[in-house]
Amino acid sequence: MSGSMEFLLWTKGPMFDIALAIFAIGLFARLAEIFLLGRKPNYAEPRAGEWLPGLRTVFTRTIADPGTFQRASFNVVVGWVWHIGFLIALLLFVPHAELIKGLFGIAWPALPNPVVDLVTAITLIALVATLVHRLTHPVKQRISTIEDYLVWTVVFLVVLTGYLAYHRLVNPYPVALGMHILMAEILLIILPFTKLTHIFTTFIARWYNGAAFGRKGVQS
């Protein structure tokens, strides 16, 4: 017998374990792949240390410089909106906060549901905007690959199914919730093997960038 509840329990049980295992193995493999490559020793006399400028860039690069903001405001703003929206929905929605607490024992305050609901709606609109931009901007058209569209689809479906489940727009509810969990699991599974890795490697990349520039006396 395989009904909606069995589907939900499968996504919450074995499938979640599989997804998490692939995610953890893949991600750590990826990180090992990066770090073990190492860097060649640098004999040039530094102007400054690497750690502090590196760490500073990890944070500062989140905000575009004024010139870039002006030249690519749509790209920057929409990117910001959906990233922040996604993070809010991911970390500050009560069921998600409970999931993290259940898994890792770390808890933090969550936002009231209507707030997350609004944020999610905005995120969905922003995600559609990013797709339109990707399909129409000459640079993005030229550099986009199948992977970009695949990742967009998965991310969009994660948010969309979450939205549908919250509003109970799909019946029965275990199907709605199961679809959402399954999409999130697909996201976890593809994360280490696609550009989604940037969720983690961005901070490494930024650090290397900041360190290299900082060493030469420039805060990047």
């Binding site: 990826r30 640079v139 890795t197 940037h198 490697t201 961005t202």
Partner: peptide, 9 residues
């Protein structure tokens, strides 16, 4: 390379 998201900025 792991981090590029093809944003085109």
């Amino acid at each position: 390379f792991s981090s590029c998201v093809h944003c085109g900025i």
